[in-house]
Design a protein around this nucleic acid. Structure first.
Lengths: 138, 138
DNA sequence: AGTTAAATTAGAATTATTCTAAATTAGAAC
DNA sequence: GTTCTAATTTAGAATAATTCTAATTTAACT
């Protein structure tokens, strides 16, 4: 049983997430999930849709990305002020962030060990994000 | 020899950072560094300055914060899209992020163990940020 | 005091994102 | 297949954080 590609196609995936399979959601799901793990911004997805002749407004891109995050089909990654990345890899993992290029790269969670986690003074731990910031060699 | 409070006053601190000790920079350094460890936004600092009757424009707040980051007097922490926090604690450490309130809390680096760090495919590791995201208990 | 480069400023510009209200569409009911 | 209704999409305006610009002020040197 693999965690990868849990749905045969976009339609099934939207059904399972209880999102109406509209033209734009189907098209965006395909763009997002049929190319392996990606880290994409709203603007980039909008451009990809345009390139694929899928007419979809930027507002819908944002709506859809947030709905997908809510449905746990995507994860939002924040590494840069003023710009969100959406990660199609929803497995537990971490990131390299390359400061020069602004690119992200996954690090599977078994490649880093984070131990000795302190308990928060209140509330519950929802997630632990590790970002390794990488700069060009001095 | 402690790493804490390395300068007796704002003037010394600016001199060491090779920043001209102007009225605004002196006042902002005092606001930032004379109250222990803090996580503050540009807007908040602007409000504090106003409350202390220090006339300083928002542009200067931003300029100064970034200069301080460049001089390693501050660290920028990104946990939220579209808003930067500036951290007066420049020692190696990590953060709790409370999603309900938007507040940050320091975790000294000796309270978490991050081991087995993978090497990046190119470049050098500049920093490792661990953010523990905390939500109200379900 | 006079000079000059650095710093500050108000306000405009930019960027990412969200909101609004109108038009379209998916899916259920007939 | 039409009709109906609520959900979705949309263009464009609005917002929020930040950066830029060009003019003014100031720190520090002579």
């Amino acid at each position: 049983m693999s965690n990868h590609r849990p749905f045969a196609n976009a339609l099934e995936l939207l059904r399972a997430a209880k999102l109406r399979p509209t033209r734009q959601r189907l098209a965006l799901a395909k763009l997002l999930f049929e190319k392996g793990d990606r880290h994409i911004t709203a603007e980039q997805l909008h451009d990809e849709a345009a390139a694929a002749s899928i007419p979809v407004s930027l507002a819908t891109i944002y709506n859809t990305l947030h709905q997908f995050v809510g449905a746990r089909l995507l994860r939002e990654v924040v590494v840069n002020p003023g710009r969100s990345y959406f990660d199609t890899n929803i497995a537990d993992h971490h990131h390299f962030f390359f400061e020069e290029s602004g690119k992200l790269m996954d690090i599977p969670s078994d490649k880093i060990e984070v131990t000795n986690l302190p308990q928060p003074p209140h509330g519950a731990i929802r997630r632990v994000d590790v970002v390794i910031r990488v700069a060009p060699k001095g």
